[in-house]
């Protein structure tokens, strides 16, 4: 079975480093890459009535914006790399969604970046990288 890498990508510097790493791996192993962009979202948050009403429209706009600013640039950048690229955008909890994308695509590895800031929030709630390490049933590479 050919190797398939899922890369968590949000356009940040850390995510770019993760993608560069994944591209290098993919070239060496003749693997394909699934670029996964997760829009952080909890179905258990509290919204105002106006937000409920506009949610469907906002979701569409958020997806369009992500497509234009995150996904399209990276597609263009990798167009000539010779690597087979797929892209996915999904809402949810980053680590959970990356795992489910990996499962759905039969991926062999997940690659994510780490911003290394050690922010308070990350310490309290755990970063995506930390969450993945704890629960992922497949190899994960954390790119510093």
């Amino acid at each position: 079975m050919p190797e398939k890498l899922v890369v968590g990508y949000d356009g940040s510097a850390a995510a770019k480093r993760a993608l560069d790493f994944a591209v290098a791996v993919a070239k060496a192993q003749n693997a394909s890459i699934v670029i996964a962009h997760v829009l952080e979202w909890s179905p258990y948050s509290f919204l105002t009535p106006e937000e409920l009403e506009e949610r469907h429209v906002r979701r569409r706009r958020e997806l369009e914006r992500a497509e234009a600013h995150v996904i399209t640039p990276v597609r263009e950048k990798l167009a000539d790399s010779g690597i087979e690229i797929e892209t996915v955008m999904r809402y949810g909890h980053s680590a959970e969604v990356l795992l489910s994308i990996a499962k759905d695509n039969g991926a062999t590895q997940i690659v994510v970046g780490r911003d290394g800031q050690g922010r308070l929030a990350a310490r309290m709630f755990g970063s995506t990288a930390a969450n993945l390490i704890q629960v992922a049933p497949l190899p994960c590479t954390i790119v510093p």
Partner: peptide
């Protein structure tokens, strides 16, 4: 795949 839309929980909470 419908995540990001208004969930049942959110409608109930509001």
């Amino acid at each position: 795949n419908d995540a990001g839309e208004v969930s049942h929980f959110q409608a109930l909470a509001t």
